[in-house]
Design a protein around this nucleic acid. Structure first.
Ligand code: SF4
Ligand code: SF4
Lengths: 141, 141
DNA sequence: CCCTAACTGGACCATTATAGGATTGATTAA
DNA sequence: TTAATCAATCCTATAATGGTCCAGTTAGGG
């Protein structure tokens, strides 16, 4: 349907769930799936690319589960979307102009390239840590 | 595949083709389809919503065809995309939070709403006239 | 007046993406 | 050992996308 599919939406919520629980050791997928109302079997497939990308770490066996591999502030939403959607662009031709014979003289291409730029800039500016903050912001000086 | 499908891409190129030919009376679909390398039968379906939206005007009968109903500068790319994609948002829940029971307390919703804002702002800032300019810009004072 | 170019609407189809399910196997704490 | 848990693979249903076909209708031009 759209650039932001359930993969990104579920995946981001999954990461936020992990982040909000902090470093208490791995959390099993079933409990997260239940809390978030996401089909566990579906979520199980989303974690694979997240692990391959080094965003999360998994522990097998009893008491196993998943935990963040980095600080939430170091995980940009852009990276999550790219990893889960399997692509980084809204349009093929902005990444690979050679795929379209018209790209050299296409008046619309700059429009889409510009759109992609604003999308990337925005998503890169937001991290999992930014949205996972479970408590009030830090009011100390 | 993505938010920007062939409907928007073809449609925008179609409008630019119209704009670049100026007010010389209606242009028939076949010649545009051929020039742009778009299947005429497919393009024929894209023009219907564009006409309903008041972006183009059609003339039936011999020597008929299509022409812009407004000045190219008055047609924002945002409007074209909304009309052709049949929706205005990248995500349902940003428009209709009532569709998701979690929207009231969803930490990710602001992320998507913010993304949508930057996308809308960008697309609203670009008009068909901006990209259709067939010649060098006006250097007069 | 009639022909015909051209638009109009709808049915139809093939391919792909999406969302989800199920099964089986490997690993490890207790 | 055994139960819990990740890992990997295969399967299915549904929808979106991109495109075709055709039977109408309209109206300009000769
Ligand atoms: S015609 Fe332009 S917008 Fe379309 S695929 Fe080619 S380069 Fe991209
Ligand atoms: S959980 Fe949040 S992002 Fe997902 S559909 Fe509901 S409101 Fe939207």
């Amino acid at each position: 349907m759209s650039f932001i599919s359930t993969r990104s939406r579920y995946g981001l919520r999954f990461l936020i769930d992990l982040a909000q629980r902090g470093a208490l050791g791995p959390i099993d997928l079933g409990s997260i799936a239940e809390r978030q109302g996401i089909p566990e079997t579906y979520l199980a497939k989303l974690v694979v690319p997240l692990r391959n990308a080094g965003i999360i770490r998994s522990a097998r066996g009893a008491k196993g589960g998943y935990e963040l591999a980095r600080s939430p502030a170091e995980v940009a939403v852009l990276e999550v979307v790219e990893v889960l959607e399997g692509r980084s662009s809204l349009l093929e031709c902005t990444d690979r102009p050679e795929l379209c014979a018209r790209s050299a003289d296409c008046p619309t291409l700059p429009v889409w390239t510009g759109l992609e730029t604003v999308v990337h800039d925005y998503l890169a500016s937001v991290s999992v840590g930014d949205v996972a903050a479970p408590r009030a912001p830090d009011y100390s000086i």
